[in-house]
Computed example of a mutant assay.
Amino acid sequence: MFCLAAALPAAAGDQRREQDYAEQIQRQLTDGRAVWLQTERQPFLGLYSDAEKTDNRDAAIVLHDMGGHPDQGPVVRGLRSTLPKHGWAVLSLQMPVLEIGASLDDYFIVFDEAATRIDAGVAYLQQGGAKRIAVVGYGVGAAMALYRLSAKPDGVMAFAAVSLPVADDRLPQAQSLEQIKRIGLPFLDVYAEFDLPSVLDTARQRRMAGKDNPVYRQIRLDGEGHAYLQNDNLLVKRIYAWLTITANEK
């Protein structure tokens, strides 16, 4: 698989860094199973877990933060391990990464590749029998999901954004507030009391951008920072409770 990746045209992201993540994760994986998905550019890793005691009809795609991987702790790992216990199959995707030290503004060049990976994730879950698919994005993963869903909500019934950043950049990929206005899906916007400035300082702007969406909801978790180290279980609980309520209303 890695030889195949090397033979493909060069992508904007750091493929070697992705390969290193994949090797490390597959050596240590104890929860779920590794699956390989494909875009026109390259193969990429996903981590899949079946829902417990259900038929995988409900499934969530989980997207990590900037420079991370599909088993990133504590947020992504918490979602991966907990959502299946509450009736949700989970597919956590490796999103494009850049070199260490790259900024949010640098990452906009890989948002189109990120959108195709979400497409591949939706297709994989649908082929496995999923009928209701939600996307849960964290940090830059949330911004990537927002970019895709604002232009193409196909196959997705709900979107939960954790610590969604808003950048001051003129690129189309960076127009998060305009993208929020185009989202008609049930939309949960969660952020932390001590989040990053790009998240915390734009909370009101995001809320105003979502005001015409009757199923937009914003909540702040007090006492937490961007990494959600104080009580990551509370964040996960808020997300799965919201997903369950949303799915039952469909």
Rank of each mutant, 00 (worst) to 15 (best):
A160D: 00
G139S: 15
Q179A: 15
Y124V: 02
P96D: 10
A120W: 00
D106S: 10
G129P: 14
A151K: 15
S103R: 15
G184K: 13
P165S: 13
A120R: 08
D189L: 13
K131Q: 15
A120Q: 02
D154I: 04
G184C: 10
M144I: 05
A142L: 02
Y191D: 00
P84I: 03
L177H: 07
G128L: 13
S163V: 01
V122W: 00
A192G: 07
V90L: 09
V90M: 06
A145L: 01
Y124A: 06
S92R: 05
P172K: 06
D189F: 08
E99A: 15
Q175I: 11
A130P: 11
S92I: 09
Q173Y: 07
A142W: 00
D168N: 14
L125H: 01
L104I: 13
G129Y: 08
Y147R: 07
A142P: 08
F159E: 00
M95H: 09
K152A: 13
Y191M: 12
I109Q: 15
D169E: 12
V122C: 08
S103K: 12
D112L: 10
V156C: 05
G121M: 02
S92K: 07
A115P: 13
L125Q: 04
L104H: 11
A134T: 14
R132H: 15
P153W: 03
M95I: 04
P186F: 06
A167S: 14
F111S: 09
G141T: 00
V90E: 04
V136C: 01
F159K: 06
A161V: 05
I118D: 08
D105A: 14
Y191N: 09
G129T: 12
G184W: 02
G155Q: 09
A89E: 05
L125T: 03
D106E: 02
L93Q: 05
Q126D: 01
A160C: 10
L98W: 01
Q179V: 10
A142M: 07
Y147H: 13
W88K: 03
Q179M: 14
D112K: 14
A174Q: 01
A120C: 03
A161D: 00
F159N: 02
D168M: 14
D119P: 05
P96Y: 11
A114Y: 03
P165L: 11
L171F: 11
P186C: 08
Q126F: 07
F159M: 10
L177I: 09
M144Y: 03
T116V: 14
Y107I: 03
D112E: 15
M95W: 08
Q94A: 14
L125G: 06
K131F: 04
D106P: 07
L93S: 02
F108N: 11
Y107E: 11
M95R: 11
V122M: 01
F111M: 13
A151Y: 03
G101R: 09
L91D: 04
L188A: 03
R132N: 15
A134I: 08
E178S: 12
K85S: 12
L171V: 11
D112G: 13
G137N: 07
L91M: 07
V156D: 03
L188V: 02
I118E: 05
Y191C: 05
